[in-house]
Design a binder for these strands. Structure first.
Lengths: 132, 132
DNA sequence: CCGAGTGTACCACATGTACCGGTACACACG
DNA sequence: CGTGTGTACCGGTACATGTGGTACACTCGG
């Protein structure tokens, strides 16, 4: 199974689902048109309430990751269709700024920070190619 | 004044204080040995409760950003003394991974993402040099 | 020594919100 | 109509946040 949730995590279960689905899409394991399990089906698999799944799906739909068709199911949709792209891009910049500050407090050089980021990018590329 | 808090922000006020102090330190506007206002003094300036300031200071002390001397005040201490450096470094890696996923969903290439990060770094360096 | 100023440790309380579950409803398809 | 889909609503629990107040321990200068 490509989905796992931990009820004891500090991160809420619905958020874990959101993150994992987004990651699978980014990795290419979930492609546009693919259908996700129904809320009750997935709830049964994970033995949690279907409302928790529904909340995750609603968030994913808000982010234009999935498309919901009442009575039929939910499907992965094309990427790059985000309506709030500019706001989310700005949020990424804010996150990066915080990374720079945090790096400084950990005694990391700017060069080290950049190298770390490049390493994360490289690992991502490896994993993505390995699973495809 | 180098500190501003917004009570209506989704981010708690004590967290805003923590982030801003850390940013000022990283920028070099606050240097090791500099003294912060007392909890009651800063509370008066921002017209919020002293307990909120105390919470921010405790968090800053936990992260080894400031040093507390009972009866004297709080002072910026040297950087690179973090005790949980490894855990915080790992948290940075997790943040970077999420950035990669988010970039993909916004239709950003890995090259674009890297360039954006480099630009943030460059802006940071400019601002830091301009204010010093 | 005393007092003012410092951070700290409590407490009680109100507020808002996140989280999750149960139930019932609305829609699509065959 | 029945089954399967997502959705809306309500409620309970828990937690985070912020406030106000009080008291305590410490440092320093008078």
């Amino acid at each position: 199974m490509w989905l796992r949730v931990d009820a004891r995590s500090s991160e809420p279960m619905y958020q874990q689902i959101v993150d994992q689905v987004k990651a699978r899409v980014a990795e290419g394991l979930l492609k546009p048109g693919d259908r996700l399990p129904s809320v009750r089906e997935l709830a049964g698999m994970l033995t949690i309430n279907h409302n928790t799944i529904a909340k995750a799906y609603q968030e994913l739909e808000r982010q234009r990751v999935i498309e919901v068709v009442r009575g039929r199911g939910t499907f992965i949709c094309e990427t790059g269709q985000a309506w709030d792209a500019e706001a989310r891009r700005q949020a990424m910049v804010d996150t990066m700024r915080k990374l720079v500050v945090e790096a400084h407090h950990l005694g990391m050089d700017e060069t080290e920070l950049l190298r770390l980021f490049q390493r994360v990018l490289a690992q991502w590329r490896e994993q993505r190619e390995g699973e495809t």
